[in-house]
Amino acid sequence: EWIKFAAACREGEDNSKRNPIAKIHSDCAANQPVTYRISGVGIDQPPYGIFIINQKTGEINITSIVDREVTPFFIIYCRALNAQGQDLENPLELRVRVMDINDNPPVFSMTTFLGQIEENSNANTLVMKLNATDADEPNNLNSMIAFKIIRQEPSDSPMFTINRKTGEIRTMNNFLDREQYSQYSLVVRGSDRDGGADGMSAESECSITILDVNDNIPYLEQSSYDITIEENTLHSQLLQIRVIDLDEEFSDNWKAIIFFISGNEGNWFEIEMNERTNVGTLKVVKPLDYEAVKNLQLCIGVRNVAEFHQSIISQYRLTVTLITVTVLNVVKGCVFQPGSKTFIVDSRMEANHTVGEFLATDCETGQATNKFKNVRYRYVMGNNPENLLVVDSGIITLRNRVTMEQYERLNKRYEGTVLSIHDSLQRTCTGTIIMVLCGFWTTTEHPTTSTEKPVTLSITPNVDNVHFGPAGIGLLIMGFLVLGLVPFLLISCDCGGAPGGGAGFEPVPECSDGAIHTWAVEGPQPGGITTICVPQMPPGNANVIEYIDNSGVYTNEYCGREMQDLGGGERTTGFELMDGVKTSAAPEICQEYSGTLRRNSMRECRDGGLNMNFMESYFCQKAYAYADEDEGRPSNDCLLIYDIEGVGSPAGSVGCCSFIEDLDESFLDTLGPKFKKLADISLGKEIDSYPDPDPSWPPQSTEPICPQHMEQLASGHPSISPHFGKTTVISENAYPSGPGVQHPMLIPDPLGYGNITVRESYTTSGTLKPSVHFHDNQQASNVVVTERVVGPISGADLHGMLEIPALRDGTNVIVTERVIAPGSSLPNSLTIPNPRETSNVVVTERVIQPTSGMIGNLSIPP
């Protein structure tokens, strides 16, 4: 069984001449009568009756003209029926295709297409796309439309092209110029059969608007202007400056801005633009002074509100237009400068007494007007209360002696006016005269009622008229005496060393040994604050120790004593910032480091006479120098300044006393009193307060270090997890005297095992080579080892040492401190062999030796 268009007919034609177009036949007809029937569209469905069948012969005829655009094909269902009307066969389909003829022209979707394009657009820029349809058979030549521009207005030169297949209109070139033609009209034809001569056509119109761009440079109507103005006058419309611009009117491409290039430094002028006319109005907003500026040249330029188009931006050159301004002199008359003047008049002044002179100034010459007295200017009194004064040529005199009645009516004060008049110019200026009346007494103020003689101090604008009464002279003498006392006061303040004296004068801490103060004592600090010992920098001392073990409360004593012992010689000390450094006086650069120095400690150090500015500067320099050595080196690798306090303490990693709870406490009895006390603290026992500082330092007996302080020490290293012992942080610092100061180093965890902190601090010199050795420290836990080595051994091979027996499967706490006595024979190393099954080991070794050449050594096996 196969299906195909079995038959075809052409639309628009009479196909009856080819009837019958088909016939059906069933073999059943050989045995019985068969009736053939057809059904479907065009038969028993609209359009009816297109096809009919001869029921006997099965011949199918077409009866009328068909339209493909109405019914592109027909499906005729054919049946064979017996006499009872029953189907003898399964129905068959006969498909009849209607063949297309080009009976439909193209139709544009719009009568007039509207488009727009910027002038100066590049060639082949898409402007618009036309749309037209054809009702003939799709994908048939009869419906294939070809577009063509058949007319253009203006027709100077073709400016557009059209794609014959897609209908896209594009620019032919980049010569579109709105200033030449702002509108184009195209007539476009669409023809089917791909534009063939036998095709059908339709036409449409396209209207293309050319958009403006700022491709015209504005210019002024005139190349120069000359104007004349009077001085001291304002003008709202001094000059109209018209701007010529060819771009689209009222657009930003056309609107101009006139601006001053030079000449208006005094801000006398402004230019206001009229956006409707593109005319600028030059205004005088600040009066010109002929005496100051007689002529000036304004250089102005013009531009548009909008930026210039890229096509001309390279052509733009600022054109300067000159406006020559001539300032005319105006005779201004005179003016009182200042506008008022105060005189003192007392009761003893007689009639015709000259009170003073009050002259107006001629504005043209700047001179007092008495130069022209009786010639150009005359003076008269204006407001003259009680008619007290007379003026002549600026000289003010008393008409009569001021009486007590006048004094009372004037309420002790006279205020009048004087006029300076230039008759020919008809200009007048006014000055105010104020007189203070002194030496008058009302009935209640009469001197007979007072035992004290009144003091009259009259000061007039004329310095020659200064009068002092006896009491005034006395006041002056008192003033001189006070001034004389000042040097004596300064001298007495300068002796700031006197206790309690010189309040307000703070001695500058400049490394005086006496500046080591009482806080450097052994004992706990209030509030459990970690002590920070800041070095005292002796003048000219280049040796700086940057590390101090502050794990013990006697660190302070250590530092202070050491500095006393060392005196002015090779002096080494340390400084460790557990919480970072930051003070208000610190440079900004320092504030990049997190954390702050705890204020208490800083204050203590400052109070102790430390040069904090030096310390801050020094550490900042160190930090940046270290970071600058290698750009890839994180700056936080250098200065071990951290601030993790408050975010979790690594207490469990470095000797928190909590782990002691599970232990046999008896061993604590064998420890030194300090450790024992700390253990008591940890166990919640009642303890005595800390003892006073030990005056016999350095100690001759071993004293345990406070585990809590060790804990704080470790908290200064962020690499130690507060919860999980997985990081080993070891810092070693050895500071021999002489150049080459070693910096604190942060050693990455070589094994990833837990929580071993080793600190060494040596503040000595000589050949001392202390060392700390750890062997197989995997899985160590909670071991605090402290060794302190102190002694002024000269030239001896002093090695700080601490040997710890095997800790495999042992207890978790070993606290050992050994003090190396001066001159004693010392083992060579500090060794902790195989602390397996342990974690959280803190070892602190300090060797203090005032000899040179000491080298710190610390080794850890892999």
Binding site: E1, P20, K23, N90, L92
Partner: peptide
Amino acid sequence: EFQIQVRDHNAKNGTIKWHSIRRQKR
């Protein structure tokens, strides 16, 4: 057999042929 034949008109020589384009067998 039930079949449909269509007429093939040869315009050149005016002859007419019938082609069975659809048939089905029982």
